[in-house]
Write a protein that binds this DNA or RNA. Sequence first.
DNA 1: CAGTGGTCTAGACCACCCA
DNA 2: GGGTGGTCTAGACCACTGC
Lengths: 243, 243
Amino acid sequence: MLVERRRSVASQATSILAERIRTQLYAPGSRLPSESELAAELGVSRASIRSALGRLAAEGMVLRKQGDGTYVNARLQHIPTTLSGLWDFLGLIERSGRAPAIQVLAQTVRAASEHELEALALEEDEPVFHLRRVFLADDTPAIVADNAIPLALLQQPPELCDGQLPINEFIARYCQTQIAYGIFDIDALLPDGPTQALLRLEDQSPLLRLRQVFYDRQNEPLLCGSSSYNEKLLGLRLVQSWS
Amino acid sequence: MLVERRRSVASQATSILAERIRTQLYAPGSRLPSESELAAELGVSRASIRSALGRLAAEGMVLRKQGDGTYVNARLQHIPTTLSGLWDFLGLIERSGRAPAIQVLAQTVRAASEHELEALALEEDEPVFHLRRVFLADDTPAIVADNAIPLALLQQPPELCDGQLPINEFIARYCQTQIAYGIFDIDALLPDGPTQALLRLEDQSPLLRLRQVFYDRQNEPLLCGSSSYNEKLLGLRLVQSWS
DNA sequence: CAGTGGTCTAGACCACCCA
DNA sequence: GGGTGGTCTAGACCACTGC
């Protein structure tokens, strides 16, 4: 049953169960088979099944009741957003039911700003690769994202990089490394002139801003950036479950 | 070594390791003992140690490198906020280095608003218990929080309830149930007059707003509410780590 | 190569819920 | 009491890293 290589058994089990819930093979509100039954059916250990159910429970897709069973959450058929999904702008737009697209506005090399010098631990006057993009939802601008990467990390000439890539894939492809973690600051602000024009905002309605710094496994800064959301358009909805 | 009752071994191990990092017994940037060594030292299985390290890694406190070891994250000495910590306003203020306090502004029973009727799945004209509070950071108002609970859920006369309690303890104490999960919407908005006055805002600077609905294990709505942050004062900082 | 973290299993016991 | 999820253990093998 579970035979793919290179993908963990627990991860495959998660996908299978999520799919069964999505297709309502396990109907909303109904009780799933017990962990032992699922383990036997999929030919894996109960620990692997528990790992899979744990991930689904963390996303709110299922509710577990000790001594009773595991139930499909009937309230969450159309509300999937996790914290890690927050920075996946394309997925965010897609899940809102709109067609996502990326428009690259600028892809340049410039001196690092003061804030970038500190955040990226750079030497004075060290250049960064600056990527400015707009994420469109059904052709309507929804997010403006600016990202700066130390030029020294790029393994390719900047003009050859594909600015359409999601930022984690961009890093993986052109910096030959992986994002281990990120630190995010969320605040609210009134858009400046250019941002207001880019997002085609009529009034001065406030925006959500996400500023982020990503680090690799060696704890070296990879990227810092700032993204402004038109949250009227997208809506940031999270699920948080306890123990 | 690990002898407390009623608290899981993995949870106790998490506390022990977190404490060792906090007190720099494991210095910033240094490598922790291997999982097997920790398991032997604490007298628990490697699985329990891995569970503990997994939680610390999710919060960014340690970085794990396959084939190498687990390292104390030197960058995160003073940046602890997880998604679940976002709704713990007292802790949020405390971690920002200020003295937290709660001021109860209103503790009343009133008819449910239209939005509350739907969110809490109430019958027409059903009353709710409404709690309006301000969270102070060093005596400066930082957050205005409004919460509505179906009156039918309260096991005590509303005037006898202690409005100073954190909302999850309030629910546990007076509704005899527990929050299983919550759905949160984040947006940005300009404060209305009363809010602006309560938070003592001089200009019309935008606020972060968190709207939430909590559910219990039976998937019944427990509470809905809205909290406005003065994020200039507090700052919302999150850590997200991958795989 | 030896040692590390990553994955998985089989089996055990407990706390809890419901009939 | 029987079945469920919650916890924990011991042991195994793998993938990867650094020397």
